[in-house]
Amino acid sequence: MADVEMRTESKDDDWVRIESNDGFSFLVRRRVANISGTIKNSLDTESGFSEAESKTYVAREYRGLIIQKLLEYMCFKAHYDKVGPKEEVPVNEFLERIPAEIVLELLLAADYQEM
């Protein structure tokens, strides 16, 4: 029974945890986390990885600030990806929110996270 429950839940919007290397921990909807290909694969319930069982993705490479921006982009994309073609995606506003100091670090993280 428990098994079945878990599966139906994982298809829906259950929460997953993403941890940074400096002790920050973020809870996001699985739907949002799945925007990153790397996180999606790690948390895939059929993969059998320990991450999937604990529903926790530990991003050892990144500090909290970077994770925060990654998640910000993921929420941004999750929100605007579905809007109709006429609605404008405020990309520029999002660009404004990325500080130049972290952009290289963020680029590497984004590359690794396939997004």
């Binding site: 982009y73 660009l95 990325i98 100091e101 952009v103 290289l104 680029l107 984004a110 997004m115």
Partner: peptide, 22 residues
């Protein structure tokens, strides 16, 4: 737009002021 492409946009924007990139 992918996050990587957005980052590259920002890099291009600050390319004359590389110190700003940390």
């Amino acid at each position: 737009p992918s996050l990587a492409s957005l980052c590259i946009q920002i890099i291009s924007r600050y390319i004359d002021d590389i110190e700003a990139l940390g």
